[in-house]
Write a protein that binds this DNA or RNA. Structure first.
Lengths: 154, 154
DNA sequence: AACTTATGAAACATTTTATGTTACATAAAA
DNA sequence: TTTTATGTAACATAAAATGTTTCATAAGTT
């Protein structure tokens, strides 16, 4: 329960040039930090990672937990604890991390489902849906072809 | 200024299975209604369109205004007024409507720009960015190959 | 001319998502 | 036992997409 007071609300609702929507930057952030972790001796604390990513430790734990579930990193509590890479960079692709983060869809474009009986709506949704599927397949295929080791070489 | 009281806030923050985010359904909606409009005698009022799309007239005007700017539809005020298709369905592609709606990006995935000097971040962003660009290019190429007339034939 | 039917547009509200923040429990090393 | 970590729940914030209210304006109708 909170009170919102005095909003600016400069809303470009009628503008053709929309402002960019907020993006999910977890993939970019995690790839970045994983490569750095591969070059580190000690475990990286959430605090340390948070500083690197300009965020805070809880956000780091939340996101890294997704990677731990898949075995890409391990976490250790207490003194000298933190996060460690558990797999060689050669053995992780962008797709692996993308999948670990569990994003449901990569698109901002959605379909409608108001009239499941309308053949026009069906045709529209099938066409858009097929195009999105093909586009996503290409993206994921490419993600699957690149390992973190390749990125680390620059 | 408003008061938010007693939120449910079932937040799947730690869950791997994220809920689907809100999607921009304007493309789907506009294609749907444009094809219907091609089969109509009279002008379609915002009220009429809103009922078809399960939304309200102001949202319709807001979105249709984007299409009017590009000349795909015209609007007429007063009695018997409303919206009319201004171009044959054969001459409009999905890409035309997509562009008219002015979506800045089709992806929920974003890059980071915290350390523009870090070569690792640069490499990560270039790889993700290139992959997104290729994926989007495929999507738009496909959108450009399909006319509304083709969809209308089912 | 008065009335009715439309769009045009500003202002505000609501909902959802991504992210940020606070607080406390727990585990492990010093 | 103190310090340093993670684990997690709960709450807060900001921005985007959409919805809603309200009034101005234009154009037919009576």
């Amino acid at each position: 329960m909170y009170l919102k007071v005095s909003t600016q609300n400069i809303n470009p609702q009628y503008s053709t040039e929309r402002e960019k929507m907020r993006k999910d930057s977890r993939l970019s952030r995690m790839l970045h930090i994983l490569i750095h972790m591969a070059q580190m001796e000690q475990a990286a604390t959430s605090e340390f990672i948070a500083t690197m990513l300009n965020t805070n430790p809880v956000v780091v734990r939340r996101t890294m937990a997704c990677l731990r579930e898949k075995g890409y990193v391990t976490s250790v509590k207490g003194h000298g604890g933190g996060w460690r890479l558990n797999v060689a960079l050669e053995d992780i692709t962008l797709l692996d991390i993308h999948n670990a983060l569990g994003e449901s869809s990569v698109f901002t474009i959605g379909l409608t489902d108001e009239h499941t009986e309308c053949i026009i709506e069906k045709a529209v949704n099938r066409e858009i849906g097929d195009a999105l599927a093909a586009s996503e397949a290409l993206l994921l295929r490419r993600f699957g072809e690149v390992t973190l080791a390749q990125l680390a070489l620059i």
